[in-house]
């Protein structure tokens, strides 16, 4: 599988309301290039991870965000994730975890909406997060160094 190149994302969308879907490239189970060449901000990323209407990562993961109670246990702890995975590997896992595990429960936060089935009207043709929000999360997660909690 090494050096195997997969091109995903089909560009523009049939449904209005959302921005055109940006292509990305997976290589060795990582996305090396930031989406749209955008630069992330770690502080914003932390806020998005907490926000129930955006990342809501705490629904499933434990993270070093002590001011929030009740971190979920569906997924692995993200304490120290920046020491275990590279930036590109983290980006792929946020964008589309199903590339790694088709059976996963983790939503693809920047997955191509054309795959979605029976989406509620208001979300039709939209990704869960914008490219900027994904980059903010990546910028935050790479700062989580050290061991698992």
């Amino acid at each position: 599988m090494r050096s195997f190149l997969l091109l995903l994302g089909m560009g523009g969308l049939a449904h209005g309301g959302a921005d055109a879907y940006l292509d990305w490239e997976m290589r060795d189970y990582a996305i090396e290039q930031p989406l749209g060449g955008l630069k992330g901000d770690a502080a914003r990323g932390r806020a998005i991870a907490r926000d129930r209407s955006r990342g809501n990562c705490l629904a499933c993961h434990r993270m070093p965000i002590p001011e929030e109670e009740f971190h979920g246990t569906l997924g692995p702890s993200l304490h120290g994730i920046g020491s275990r995975l590279t930036e590109g590997q983290i980006r792929l896992r946020i964008v589309d975890q199903k590339q790694l595990n088709p059976m996963t429960i983790m939503p693809g936060f920047y997955r191509n909406p054309r795959y979605f089935n029976r989406v509620a009207d208001e979300y039709e043709g939209r990704t869960i997060l914008t490219p900027q929000e994904v980059e903010d999360l990546v910028a935050y997660l790479v700062t989580l160094k050290g061991g698992k909690e």
Binding site: P107, P113, F116, N117, V119, Y123, R126, I128
Partner: peptide, 16 residues
């Protein structure tokens, strides 16, 4: 799987 989050009943109620 349904919806923007592509969840399915069995994922929450069987698997997890």
């Amino acid at each position: 799987r349904f919806g923007q989050m592509e969840m399915a009943c069995f994922l929450c109620h069987d698997q997890h």
